[in-house]
Write a protein that binds this DNA or RNA. Structure first.
Lengths: 206, 206, 206, 206
DNA sequence: GATGAATGAGAGTTCATTCAT
DNA sequence: AATGAATGAACTCTCATTCAT
């Protein structure tokens, strides 16, 4: 009992550190965030952070896996909807609803990927790519499920649009960009040829 | 004479520092780049850098204006083409031709914007936005020139697609993403309703 | 019963910690060894170490007393040999047989003495001296027993040679130094004037 | 002029740092010495130390080369004496005259070798061995010059005796050990068979 | 104008020791 | 007695910026 309580407390702290790290890294960026910042955000003494994560790199990795988990949960929920295109539209709706955060800090995974790309050490740049890849794969599956041709290209366009609009919203500090581009994406999904009936599907319309 | 020579040498150094800064910041990122890195890349003694730029922030600003200049030169050249849509297609062709650099380091302006957004000091985040804004404006002008409706939305979609594909290519380290998405953009431009004849222009088809 | 068992278990742990400490300190040195290293080597939970030893210093002291015990046991066994000079020769033979360890880590007591000398706190530097002093005394007793003049000087030369050859073997990572110098010591013992018959015994010939 | 002055000042500081490092490391040991200690001893601001030595390891290496230089200077001077055995006796006399320092801190090179042996990183342990090796070689050359057989063994015994007596003097905090053993070495040198006349040279007498 | 050197404020990390159970 | 977790002081190293010539 005592033991399991302690373990629970430990796991709790670890989790607190992970979410705090994900949040703070998103807001301040990897390089501008100090271990002290993270410790403070998680309400943990600085020295104690290293009990749970041996290096700053491990914390970054933890934030990344936090984003991956979040994505898994999100797509898991969306998967409960019957229509794949509806799932994608719900995803876009979610992006729009997060427009203020996007305008202020950008896409958590996207900006992390940009920053990690500049870090020489380790292979962490590829780690961020994996999370994005996993979103790409899920989106592709939706397009494939409705029988559209070139689902991989469609996914690329779709996720690319999301990263692009997040970056622009962030760079211009304008949440409305998320709304405008988000709504366009929804209309685009609506206008897609129905369930593979028209194999033609002019590429321009993807 | 000696004076003007000195001034010329000075201007030369300044220019060398600017281009070196732009290049190195693109490759290593703002935070990972030290003044010494820049000095070394520009072949200028470290202590001397501060004669031309009083702070690191000013160097970043210089890199930004370097990118702005580059964009101006580029659009200036494109403007010599008669057809606005051809100009846009040429722009996309340029992006594709830079695919390897994009896959390795991302879009210079875009990644800089992401990094600057995380910097607390000054208002430099907005500076990067200005460069992007200026691209956006030029693109919008092209769409307007051919009489397309909602040229601002079209520009947003167009530039967003560019930033998105650059980010994805970079995160996944895959230059082919630039090719695939670039070609799609070209087909999309080709399929756009001719010169405002069809005011309808279903947004889904953008 | 349970109580005595617990005490036995406790004593066992204490002993394990002592031998582990002696071994690890010999191999890694005092400063490079963490409490965690010792705990791990002794297979004792880190937090538990402090139940048996209140500070790291006490652990070092324990290692020292471990070496003292080892020396006592060794000389105790040697004392069962009838001839003091034979005892000394057996001691040297032991040193030679340990040549690989000496070449890798030096003499446990000697290197410990060197390290402790640099520690500001406490009077532990003198503690290591005591162990060496006790070896010196035992050796002196052997020389005295055979009636040689200046047994203290002889002991100094003898033990000094041991420390010197251990340090050289270690510094040069060459176990053969132990063999060469060890054999020389044995020949030297053999050539010593018999049992005080010749009081002259030129010190140069020691 | 200005330039050469600056260079001189720089070289001066570098040298000051080297000698300070050698001294402080000898007194406090490698692990107990902080960069701040060295900076303080050399009267240099902490941050500035790193302008001259990129890491602590490099400082240790510098101390080592300082010892090597000192040895070179010493043997260089001794070489001006005509008789090799006299040179060795003068060397011993020097050791005796340093007895207080030896009793307090041990042989600079020997204790450094012991400490470096425990450091896992780099190959610095071997570096200390090189300095000792160089002393060994010089001593061997003296024995060879007088035509004694097995000059290498003699050198080993001689240098081993020095290291041994330094360690004992240090461990027991007794400078008289240097005197007693030093004088013995001198008598031993005096008693050595003259200039290879007696090839026999009983090994016990080495 | 030019430049090597100087400076000090942090940053990440380690670890002996203590705490709570 | 036992133990995972907690704590903070100290250490090495980096770097933007300034200084002296």
């Amino acid at each position: 009992m005592t033991d399991s309580k302690a373990r629970a407390r430990g796991a709790d702290k670890r989790r607190r550190l992970m979410t705090a790290t994900a949040r703070v890294l998103h807001q301040q960026g990897v390089e501008r965030t100090t271990i002290a910042d993270i410790a403070h955000a998680a309400e943990v003494p600085v020295g104690n952070v290293y009990y749970y994560f041996k290096t700053k790199d491990e914390l970054v990795r933890a934030a990344l896996s936090e984003h991956a988990d979040h994505l898994d949960r999100l797509t898991g929920e969306l998967d409960r909807m019957p229509d794949p295109l509806e799932r994608l539209k719900a995803l876009v709706a979610g992006w729009i609803s997060q427009r203020d955060i996007a305008a202020r800090y950008g896409c958590p995974t996207g900006t992390l990927a940009v920053e990690l790309d500049k870090r020489a050490e380790g292979d962490m740049d590829l780690e961020a790519g994996k999370v994005i890849r996993s979103l790409l794969d899920w989106v592709e599956r939706q397009f494939r499920e409705v029988g559209l041709p070139h689902p991989d290209d469609l996914a690329l366009t779709f996720v690319g649009a999301y990263q692009g609009m997040s970056l622009l919203a962030n760079a211009l500090r304008d949440p409305e960009i998320m709304t405008r581009e988000g709504n366009r994406l929804i209309r685009w999904l609506d206008a897609l040829p129905e369930h593979g009936q028209r194999g033609g599907s002019d590429p321009c319309c993807r």
